[in-house]
Structures are given as structure tokens and as C-alpha cells.
Design a protein around this nucleic acid. Structure first.
Lengths: 119, 119, 119, 119
DNA sequence: GTGGTCTAGACCACC
DNA sequence: GTGGTCTAGACCACA
């Protein structure tokens, strides 16, 4: 696993976990790797993994059973999608449209790129 | 002027200046505010404004006449557009499409939001 | 049975047992469930239940007959009440009063809530 | 400054800060000590102080100006009181009443202790 | 000067 | 074995 240096590692780990959940690699109520195990997998200090797990727990995306480990929350996917969609619609899209305006890019061009991407 | 705290202020200032140029609020060869003036306008330390101007000058988006101040470069718009368009197409768009995929958002929805935005 | 994750489970079990005794659900000299039975009831590892029973035995709230199981001590209620009352008066109440002071809550309001609670 | 060992230090620091704000030792928009300064004051590692500040910032009780430090949020007192009152009414009080019931303590006795406390 | 991140290593309670 | 807390020390970007 390689990390970009322009974003905090613990945030990238958070992202990584959420993607694994979305892809159902880690299904609901499944145990996720312990902080030590995951840390050694991706070559990151367990404390840093812990920080990511901590936030994920606050967001109710994972939960903890004392002495056993962290588990995927039953409604994790729903929560993640809800959060991300909010951000997408209220932050990402407006930014996209504003940039399009400034650069005088038409919608057609976006659609063109989209079709290229899908194929 | 309010700044987001999750991005360096000097970068937000740089962004702001580029937008003003793109919108032709500050046309080619026009004098832009001095670091002190602009700094007090937006309630930011002049040093921080200077840092933004420095980078803009390196990018040849503005130029300096000693003792007179900073001025918009004649080909500023062209430079900005070239830079931003690269980033837009090769970084922003792919990221957007990836998010759409994960959230199962169709292109139709984007078009819908776009029309809402334009009106 | 659900447990809060912010307190040790064995302590929550201890609490639970003491409440059952105080409510006389488990009267004096009655046999209480075996660690295995109780553990499977509340979905907790028998070792953890054992740890709670151990402490309860040390406190002389329950006693053990080898090969037969654990039983409620004749003076269990008295012991529990003595312990808890000390803690209640010298720890819980002062803390409560301090909070009331900080939040500017008057005694009247407490009495009001008490009446609501009783009805 | 001394800390109880039965509660995480960073939580006690959070508590301490909130009390200083409630007592208006640190008024609205005032700068609070830097993590290093406060850490050396109370003889705690700056990282631990940071953890407390982090949570306080999430709760919008303090805010950050990049490169300058942390400041008391204008509506900090209101937020703290709201939070604490919720907890008081929905957690502390029900627990109090339940304990009173179990220990067969009457309201009179509480009132008695309250008067003793006030004098 | 300020926060923010990360590591390494320690110690603890809990299951 | 698991999480959770804390320290010490390092490095960085930012104002």
C-alpha cells in the first residue's frame, strides 16, 4: 500500500476502509483487522490506524466489542453513502460547475470525457 | 472574506486572485491591490498575501514594477486556463467519475443538477 | 442484554446481579445462575461472568458451595446498601450538586423531574 | 495540576477547559494557551493536550486560526451548557432516581444533603 | 511562534 | 489476543 503525501495518512486509511466496506469486501458485522495487524499490513504505525478507526467509530461506520476488536456496522454502507452523497452534491458538484464556468467548459465536453472513462 | 481553515490561506488568496482575473474584474496590465491594501481588505497578514503574489509571479500570472506594484500579466488568462484545464481533466474529473461509480450516481443526475445550477 | 462499551463488562454484570438482589428477584440463599448459563443468557464469555462473581464473592455478597454453584448471601442486601450508600452520599451527590451549580439548575427543577419520574 | 487516574487525562483536560470557559476565566474569542504552553503548565505531553483541543474543536467550543492558536468560540458557553444539561437530564438524573429507588432513599434526604452542601 | 502528523515504544485493562 | 492511553521526540507547513 502506498499513500499520497498530500493528505494525512489516517484520512487515507479511513477512506480505504470505507471503500472496502462499500465494495463489500468487509461485509456487515464482519471483524476488521486489528490495529496492529492492519498497521503491519500497510506498514503504518498502529497508533495511526487507531486514529482512523476512532473516527470511523464516531461516524458509526464501525463498532467495537471490548477485547475482541472492531466490526463493520450493519448500516455502514448506508451511512457512508449518505455522507458522501451530501458532500458530492453540496461541495463537489458546485465546485465542478464553478470551474466549468470559469474555464468556459461546456457540459458536452464533460459527457464526452465520461463516455471515454466508462469505456 | 472568510477562509476555510482546511487549506492554506495563501493558496486560497492565490485562488481568489486567479478568479478575479478570469472574471476580468482585474483585466490585463491592470494594477492589482498592494499587499498591505489587499491584506487589510481581507484581514490577512501582508506577509501571507505576499506569499501568494510571489507564487503568482513565478507562474507569470502577475508581474512586478519596482516601486509601483503588481500588475496582471497580458497572457494571464491563457496561463491560468491552461494550468487549470490540465488539472481539471486529469485529476478532478477522474476523481468525480470514480465517486459517481461508488455511489451509483448516473450521468442524468449530474445533468439535472447542472440545469438547476444554471437557472 | 446490551452493555455500554464505556464500562468494563464484568462491572456491568456485577451491577446487574446486585440490582437483582436488591429487587429481591434473587432472594437470600437462592442459587444464582451458573457462569455458563448466565453467560449464554447475556451473550458474554463465561470467564467474564466468573470475574464478576469472584468480586461479588470477595464482597461477601454471594457465596459458593463447591460443586453446587453460587448463592445469595443472607446479608447481601445489607452489604450492598451500605457500600452503595457511602458512594452515593460522598461521591455521587456532591458531583451532582456541583453540576447543578455550574449549570445554574435549582432544586425545584430536580423535584419536578422526580415527580415526573415517579408517575 | 493533579489528575485522577480513573479517567483519561485528555478528558480531564477537556473538562478543565470547559470549566474555565464557564467561569469566564477564558472569555469568548480569547486565545487559550498553546498546546505546548498548557502542556508544560499542567505537566502533560503536548500531544495529550492536543487530543483534548481536537475534541473541543469538533464540538465547536473552541476554534483555530491557522498559525495563531486556539480561541474560545463566541457561543462556547451556550454549547457547553446545552450539552451538559442534556446529559444531566437524560443520564445523570435517571441514574440518581434509580439509585434512590434501589436504596430506598426519599427525596427529603436529598434535599437535606443539598442544604448542607449549600451552606 | 502556532497547530498537525507520525513514529516508536511503553503500560494498562479487558476478554 | 484486543483496544486505549500516554510519552518522547521528530518533522512539516503555516503565519
Amino acid at each position: 500500500m502506498q499513500f499520497t503525501s498530500d493528505k494525512a495518512i489516517y484520512l487515507q486509511i479511513k477512506q480505504l476502509v470505507m471503500e472496502k466496506i462499500l465494495r463489500e469486501e468487509w461485509p456487515a458485522d464482519a471483524k476488521i483487522p486489528s490495529v496492529r495487524e492492519f498497521g503491519s499490513d500497510i506498514e503504518v504505525n498502529p497508533n495511526t490506524v487507531m486514529r482512523a478507526y476512532d473516527i470511523l467509530q464516531q461516524d458509526k461506520i464501525i463498532y467495537n466489542k471490548r477485547g475482541l476488536g472492531f466490526f463493520v456496522s450493519p448500516d455502514a454502507i448506508e451511512i457512508i453513502k449518505r455522507e458522501r452523497k451530501q458532500e458530492f452534491i453540496h461541495t463537489d458538484l458546485p465546485l465542478l460547475f464553478k470551474t466549468m464556468e470559469l474555464l468556459k467548459i461546456e457540459l458536452n465536453e464533460i459527457i464526452q470525457h465520461y463516455n471515454d472513462y466508462k469505456s
